[in-house]
Design a protein around this nucleic acid. Structure first.
Lengths: 203, 203
DNA sequence: GATAGTGACATACGATACGTACGTCAACTG
DNA sequence: CAGTTGACGTACGTATCGTATGTCACTATC
């Protein structure tokens, strides 16, 4: 219909990506049949192999897309915060909340690492954690943070946060578990502040 | 040969488990062909399905075995430490080191969660993290730890530690990365002590 | 504007691997 | 000693991935 060849091609690529993302996010990578979800958008596996090489390549593309979206959401949240410290706390809290979304949980934290290996090692991905590291750098520059290796810290905090999300997601009472996890997580972050440490209040 | 029926059965079960563990630990869950690794110990898939139900059941059994071993190793380390606090630090450091072993990395942190879902939710598994939580409880009872939710803390710390291990394992220079990760991790733990906080020394 | 060529996508095929249904033979029971 | 149980092997069906090949529309060049 409307459109040059390039536009149509981008359109199909986008449709394939969307279909795959939906399938991966719901039934999971291994149980997602390429025949099925390509047919769902009126295409075949042929198109898929043409655009993405193989099933892994497709997952890689989906992961990249989600990662970019997450990074964007996080930096927006950071910009909205009144203080830098508040921004950090807000960012990581938001990170945990995002990690609770089933699609992100499944694709970014379960199937992604399992199929593609550790996400943090791919070039041009993990914008998401890079964004969070930047916040630590800023705080450190302002002297609000204790002396630490920000990259290592970012990875540790990232691990704690994503693990917390997985814990919440799998728990019997996600609501209650979420309260506990986020509260403890903030307590942990607070302990990294330079100078006066707020008395931690459990409950 | 020697043995009643029960003994022979336990023997084959053990051989299957060993073969599967080796295959899962090296080529990974999906690329491990049941036909191949059963043949490697002179059996067939029939035996497998008889003992473990299906491929997932087999992985479950392997994970359980490894988890038990890890918990045992951790509690031994804890017992050897001169003080409780030292025990905690030693335990978690050992945890990171164990998580670096390729077999554990692959089975417990990549394929296990991907195929079976979050490990922490299975009954009778995760002895490993339970052991670590106990250490936190002890320290808290002794007043050496700040007031915190020990279960939540255990999960957060566990997340940080396992993530650190994954980071190290995938890094270009594991030796150097390991130093940074462990150092930052100890710094983090130190921040959870009640009372005087050692000035953190980077380098 | 006609024709040759490129490339986006479909189709057909082969290989592998899982799960099941069934068969068999050794070991336990009475 | 005979019947039965059950541990394990064998044969088969099916699903899915990857490749190799085909085709048709669009583009570029003369």
């Amino acid at each position: 219909m409307a459109g040059t060849r390039k536009e149509k091609m981008a359109e199909t690529r986008s449709r394939l990506l969307q279909a795959a993302r939906k399938a991966f996010g719901t039934v999971g990578y291994t149980d997602a049949s390429m025949d099925d979800f390509t047919a769902a958008v009126g295409l075949t596996r042929g198109a898929l192999y043409h655009h993405f090489g193989d099933k892994q390549g497709l997952l890689r593309a989906v992961v990249e897309q989600i990662d970019t979206e997450m990074a964007e959401r996080l930096s927006q949240i950071s910009r909205r915060a009144p203080t830098r410290w508040q921004g950090l706390v807000d960012e990581w809290t938001a990170y945990i909340e995002m990690a609770l979304e089933p699609e992100i949980q499944r694709i970014m934290f379960r199937d992604g690492p399992a199929v593609l290996g550790d996400v943090s090692q791919w070039a041009s991905t993990d914008n998401c954690v890079t964004t969070l590291k930047k916040s630590l750098d800023d705080l450190k520059a302002d002297g609000l943070l204790i002396e630490l290796d920000t990259e290592a810290a970012a990875r540790l905090i990232n691990g704690a946060a994503s693990h917390a999300a997985t814990w919440i997601a799998a728990s019997a009472d996600p609501q209650a578990t979420s309260m506990r996890a986020v509260s403890s997580f903030r307590q942990l972050l607070n302990r990294l502040r330079e100078g006066d440490i707020q008395p931690t209040r459990t409950k």
